[in-house]
Design a binder for these strands. Structure first.
Length: 742
DNA sequence: GGGCCGTCGCTTTTT
DNA sequence: GCGACGGCCC
């Protein structure tokens, strides 16, 4: 068993061999926390004689769960039956299925993803006659989600003002819709599990006793619901082993609160605290640069992260002209590194703040014939055709699923339009019928308020669905899916709704891919298949792909991974930090941590790039280097960077000439600063040529008056009201407007 | 009911 | 620059 502890440093060893009782491991990036967790579990089983079935380990992604299981099994040399490893969501999903009789939903409940959620919120909004324009589904959903993460049910929901009241009503209706559909959203998985364990003493005790050991990875990214779960489950044996790093907390937007680490120390005052400070991943240069970045965050516990891996090459900064140039540069370097340093494509990763940024990078990869693997973005399961087919499968599985029903009732077209659907819904609601009950009633010839032709179409649909349900009962997924495809004429539909032949073929390919996926385990129960589809994360797909390719991913997805070479792109004000974070509580600090996470993924080489101008929403606007770059000491960097140098100089000047030394928290509000950096990036933009009220002449539209003019990239966008031609929006450099003197 | 066209608003980040 | 949605016409 000595091999279990071999190669561990004293702190790691201390954590792995800690006796019973609560343990808090504070682990810097690259300090081997995954290793500690896997060895700890192996140690519990192999040395402390723990029963594997009594161990529950929580990871952040399914992929991490799979890897952890593999590693533990190879450490112990055998399969570990009963050991439970998974994400909070997966574990709760299982629990709710198993204990379904004690919950408000059946065991075959569905899991709604973000798209389904939005559809349900939109439906709730419409039903309540709320103005969709004024109350954006997205916003309301965020509010609902936030409430759920805080364990607030619709009945308990309170928020000030009219908006609060609207939110409360939508939340209430939304939840009814889900219950009627026998569905849960992601947040419900956690919420319902907590509520169940809180209210049902017997079940709570059963699980508290059952899980003798509880281990949680990425503890800094737990939200209230998740924390409560840890608290409840760990309260009996108190063998709670959590690992985290407050500097890597990057999921505040979904309710995670790194202060749960503090809360843990409060709730488990006897917790043993172990610090892992030695980094085994990165070079000293990378670490120093990363530390300079994270050090600007207020309210953090400073850590003495160190490495024995010497200096290494400097961090390269590149100032690109545009996002196209940035992508070219990155791909160029990648090709070069592979040729000169013998690195493989898979050794290199490109990271960015938003998924939209991947586009330019992908195009550059294609141009240079560099194989790449995109994590996230428009994933397989979010493609239209895949979602359609999954909706069919879901409806077969659960004919009361309102969201899936609305999605496919008229896809492919079967003459059931908005009007008929509305009538159907109203009729069903008035008679308190679920979707399947209403359909069955129509089929039985029950009189309805629906037009005869419409009713017939619904009945036809119900007959198809009934046939599929019979087919599904035989348990052959492939046969079911194939029948759905033929019965609905889906191929034809694909061709008719595609703009080009090319597109139709691609979508056809996707359908084939889904069939292949199902083929793998065609005997699998439909419920299992649907659940696994609902819970896969984007990073999860990274696992198996053996193909050698460059990885493109968001900084969020990069958590927990490492690469010899890392490129972080788009280091601009407004992008990283993202302007949406400016007015969020703790927003700026979280952006900073996000960059820190990205930088510390790099083992040997780190590149940081930003663009002088970037296309957003179709027009190009100038950018400023990210404020986070400023504190990185010059001796760690290489690469020309005129803008950054300027900014640093200005910063120094400001520091030298201001009394108090508070460079990052200037009195000016972040929002104002954002606006200023947009309009006056170089210390005052040139004045606008066309001012409101000025009379102008245009070659085609004739005479008009300028209503408004604003800067658009280097150009000016002028809105003119023409005497003859109405109001037009023109680009100054093309419009050749002549200013008419009065 | 469906297809076409113009308008609008938009994107953080993910289980 | 794109996709969702509403208005309009067949």
């Amino acid at each position: 068993m000595t091999s279990l502890l071999d190669g561990l440093n004293p702190q790691q060893r201390e954590a792995v061999t800690a006796g019973t009782g609560p343990v808090l491991v504070l682990a810097g990036p690259g300090s081997g926390k995954t290793r500690v967790l896997t060895h700890r579990i192996a140690y519990l089983v192999g040395e402390m004689g723990a029963y594997p079935g009594g161990i529950l380990a929580v990871t952040f992604t399914n992929k991490a769960a799979g890897e952890m299981r593999e590693r533990i099994e190879s450490l112990l040399g055998g399969r570990l039956g009963g050991l439970q490893i998974g994400t909070f969501h997966a574990i709760c999903a299982r629990l709710l299925r198993k204990e379904a009789p004690f919950t408000r939903l059946r065991a075959d409940y569905l899991i709604y993803d973000t798209d389904d959620q939005l559809a349900a919120v939109t439906q709730a909004i419409t039903e309540l006659n709320v103005d969709v324009k004024k109350y954006r589904p997205r916003q309301l959903l965020n509010a609902i989600s936030a409430a759920k993460n805080e364990l607030i049910t619709p009945a308990e929901y309170q928020a000030p003002g009219y908006v609060g009241e609207i939110t409360r009503r939508v939340y209430e209706r939304y939840q009814e819709l889900l219950v009627n559909s026998n569905a849960r959203d992601f947040d419900d998985l956690l919420l319902d599990a907590v509520l169940l364990l809180q209210t049902n003493d017997e079940l709570r005790q059963k699980y508290q006793r059952h899980f003798e050991h509880l281990l949680v990875d990425e503890f800094q990214d737990t939200n209230t619901a998740q924390y409560r779960l840890v608290q409840i489950l760990g309260n009996y044996h108190r063998n709670v082993f959590v690992v985290g790093d407050e500097d890597q907390a990057i999921y505040g937007f979904r309710g995670a609160d790194y202060r749960n680490v503090l809360q843990f120390r409060h709730d488990f005052p006897d917790a043993r605290v172990i610090l892992l400070e030695q980094n085994y991943r990165s070079t000293q240069i990378v670490l120093d640069a990363a530390r300079a970045v994270i050090d600007q965050n207020p309210n953090r516990t400073p850590k003495a992260l160190f490495t024995e891996r010497g200096g290494g090459p400097r961090v390269t900064i590149y100032e690109a002209y545009s996002e196209v140039d940035e992508a070219e540069y990155v791909i160029e370097r990648i090709v070069e590194l592979r040729r000169q340093d013998g690195l493989s494509w898979g050794d290199m990763a490109i990271m960015y703040r938003t998924n939209a940024q991947s586009r330019a990078l992908e195009e550059a990869c294609i141009r240079r014939k560099v194989p790449y693997r995109l994590v996230g973005g428009v994933g397989f399961y979010t493609r239209r055709e895949i979602r359609d087919l999954l909706a069919y499968l879901r409806l077969v599985h659960n004919p009361d699923d309102a969201v899936s029903f609305s999605r496919i009732i008229n896809v492919p077209k079967r003459g059931i339009g908005k009007k008929s659907l509305e009538d159907f819904r109203r009729w069903a609601a008035a008679n308190r019928l679920t979707i399947s009950q209403a359909l069955a009633a129509l089929a039985d010839g029950v009189a309805s308020s629906l037009a005869g032709a419409a009713a017939r179409k619904f009945v036809e649909f119900w007959q198809m669905l009934t046939n599929w349900r019979a087919l599904a009962a035989q348990g052959d997924l492939i046969a079911l899916l194939e029948d759905i495809l033929t019965q609905t004429g889906y191929s034809l539909h694909l061709h008719e709704t595609s703009d080009t032949e090319q597109e139709a073929l691609e979508r056809q390919e996707n359908v084939k891919e889904l069939l292949a996926l199902v083929e793998n385990d065609r005997q699998r129960p439909l419920a299992d298949f649907l659940e696994s589809v609902a819970l896969v994360a984007d990073v999860d797909s990274l696992a198996g792909s053996a193909e050698d390719a460059v990885t493109l991913l968001t900084l969020h997805s990069a958590k927990g991974l490492e690469f010899p070479v890392v490129f972080i792109t788009g280091l601009e004000e407004g992008l990283l930090p993202h302007f949406r974070a400016f007015d969020e509580q703790d927003g700026m600090a979280e952006e900073c941590r996000l960059l820190y996470v990205g930088m510390t993924r790099a083992m040997q080489r780190l590149y940081l790039t930003y663009a002088f101008r970037r296309m957003t929403y179709g027009d190009s606007s100038p950018g400023m280097p990210s404020r986070f770059l400023r504190p990185i000491p010059a001796q760690l960097l290489e690469g020309a960077s005129a803008l950054l140098a300027n900014q640093r100089a200005a910063h120094r000047y400001q520091q030298d000439t201001t009394w108090d030394d508070a460079p990052l928290t200037q009195p000016e509000s972040p929002v104002r600063r954002a606006i200023r950096s947009q309009i006056a990036p170089f210390g005052g933009a040139p004045a606008l040529r066309y001012k409101a009220g000025v009379r102008v002449f245009h070659g085609k539209f004739g005479e008009g008056i300028v209503l408004e003019s604003r800067r658009s990239g280097e150009d000016e966008e002028v809105t003119v009201s023409f005497r003859e031609g109405g109001i037009k929006r023109l680009t100054a450099s093309f419009a050749n407007l002549v200013i008419l003197e009065d």
